[in-house]
Design a protein around this nucleic acid. Sequence first.
DNA 1: TGAAATGTTGGGGCG
DNA 2: ACGCCCCAACATTTC
Length: 450
Amino acid sequence: MIPVFIRSTNDDGSWPSGEASDWWLHQSLSSLSTSLQKIGGGLVLRQGPSAAVLHKLIQETGAGAVFWNRRYEPAVRETDSKVRTSLQQAGITTADFNSQLIFEPWEIATKEGRPYQVFTPYWRACLQKGLTSKPIPTPKTIPWPEVWPDSVPLASFQLEPTRDWGTGLKEHWNLGCHGAAERLKEFLRLPVNQYAVDRDQPAVIGTSRLSPHLHFGEISPRTIWHAVHQTLTRSPGDSTGAETYLKEIGWREFAHHLLYHFPQTTDHPLRSEFADFPWEDNEPALRAWQRGMTGYPIVDAGMRELWKTGWMHNRVRMIVASFLVKDLRLHWRHGARWFWNTLVDADLASNTLGWQWSAGCGADAAPYFRVFNPVLQSQKFDPQGEYLARWLPELAALPPKWIHAPWTAPADVLKFAGVALGKTYPRPMVDHGEARDLALAAFQKIKRSV
DNA sequence: TGAAATGTTGGGGCG
DNA sequence: ACGCCCCAACATTTC
């Protein structure tokens, strides 16, 4: 058995991976390679068009079969299917497996046999189907070949970032299968029912933070499912936390279900009336959002956490998304692209679902008129302003009472905290009240065409 | 997995 | 003592 990773250069129209993802992939490959070496093998790295690379490897090694795990993004699905055909035509045995998901996107359907478009009934159907098979443990030994084919050096993939954010990322993540397993263990050590409460507080480590590990296949959702159920069996009692957490795994499944059945949603709204939405075109506003300089502390804290660590707390993702789409009325695609490029857990399915949900144009979406108030959200979920102070050092000296909306603070409070609005920290780039009215007015325009 | 506007109720101040 | 008004506090509706 020869483990191979191909850095594919397929011209399949898929979005080029972002820098944060690339960074993770680099570390993850290096970690996988080390693990394989420890059990006497290794990982062969190659670059080029998938099919051509595989055919060449087969020629070099005399391999008779190729196995891989299924992928679900629209563009790569097509590529993988072409690869399969071309291998089979050459008389090679192929087999593909499911490692990424608990439920295949096509095996859950409504009574009419159609895909679900609302989460709750979808998840109910999943739970009813249940998961019977147990995850297969990591093999202790693998039959290795006598002679190894050449491998290109990992560095030749040029996955390491050009900008210096490696230090910020490294401090926050422990990569690889081992890191993923550790993180799951740590997460499950917390009281299970704590999750339902803590997960919404960005200042607290209350979420599992497994998303990048899941995305890169360092841990499978089935492993998580079983570990959570085991914890429940060991210490029964209040299971709301566990159910809430598994529901998040469910959203990930749902995202893949939707992307499989509605592949156009990566770029186009699922609800077609939103194609006519009067989005603004405002480059400086987009830049202010990206850089965390909107003047709304909770938005800026989130955007800076993202830039620094390649990750953002889920509650804050919803807040910054609402701000981009409703307060600035910039197309959700701008947000999706930015997240794609900066998140270590960038995942086409989850990202697409998340942004369309926020914009109100997707499946099971928040109605468009549901506009987040960035100040209220901040006060509600970060009451002490700890999260704000952590990511906005220029506001750290402001007391909790004023840090959520510095422009409302008395002059002497600002002065004492060393805050000079418009100088050390921007004034709010829009008035939320006015922005909300404008967003609702814009919504009225497309509502008529429904 | 909202927030604001509007409606309702009930206690208390006050003439 | 009584009715009136004010306005929290909560509930409902609307965006």
